[in-house]
Design a protein around this nucleic acid. Structure first.
Lengths: 125, 125
DNA sequence: ATACTATCTGGAGTGAACTCTAAGTCAAGT
DNA sequence: ACTTGACTTAGAGTTCACTCCAGATAGTAT
């Protein structure tokens, strides 16, 4: 798969795909004899994982660490496990902040809806 | 309340408090005769709202727009309602991305846990 | 009055995550 | 062989959200 195809399939710019590889957020991608990227299944699985993690807001730095550990082989499995558990915790925390904010938004929305319906704003903020 | 007190109470740096005010993410804060910030209850409510929204990842730009609308008075209530609904939608989307990533993390974590316990890694990624 | 600490402003600097540019190489069509 | 378009790299530029700094002014203690 060419970089163009991967870019279109996963909606990640070619620049970003090259950037991810350059900084080590995904391992080096398979190349043709002349040096052009030719994404194989494993390369694509890394791309997809990277996209998923980034979309949830996990820092690039963390993925770089995870990739580095993975490339070092099975000895790093406990370290990888710990890294994943930490990231899980931080996502749960982020989720609870979002929930808090959603509650607040819902409250404001309901007040504004009443205001729009009745023309009366009970109080201002 | 002085900027120092607000900074400590809400764990936001003084620089950030001034920055929020400067860019319009909160309305102008009450000042003493000599120009020093003296946060009143409403000022503090804005600070708290700003902190809540930012902690969920809502862009500064959005809060600026919301504050601007609020300062324009009740005519902008429908616009504010729409803005809040849009932000609610984007938070829900963000939450579902986090859930997706959490599922993936949980799957990886369970596999790594088995690997650590048994010393056998079923497959690599 | 003199220190000393807190706060003020405007503007420059920082780190994260891209995003773009330039100059060169590769591949496909005519 | 030549043109056109896709791909390559290294490195510079951009955006966002702060964060720091310098120089000035304000408030407090002795």
């Amino acid at each position: 798969m060419t970089i163009k195809e991967v870019s279109e399939k996963y909606d990640i710019s070619q620049d970003t795909l090259r950037y991810y590889e350059r900084v080590g957020m995904i391992p080096p991608v398979t190349r043709t004899a002349s040096g052009i990227r030719d994404y194989q299944e494993d390369d694509i699985r890394w791309v997809e994982l990277a996209k998923c993690m980034r979309s949830a807001g996990l820092p690039v730095e963390i993925m770089i660490e995870y990739v580095k550990l993975t490339l070092e082989g099975y000895i790093t499995i406990p370290a990888r496990l710990q890294l994943l558990k930490e990231q899980k915790a931080s996502l749960l925390e982020q989720k609870s902040k979002i929930d808090e904010t959603l509650e607040r938004l819902n409250y404001k929305i309901s007040r504004y809806e009443i205001a729009v319906e009745t023309g009366i704003l009970t109080w201002e903020d």
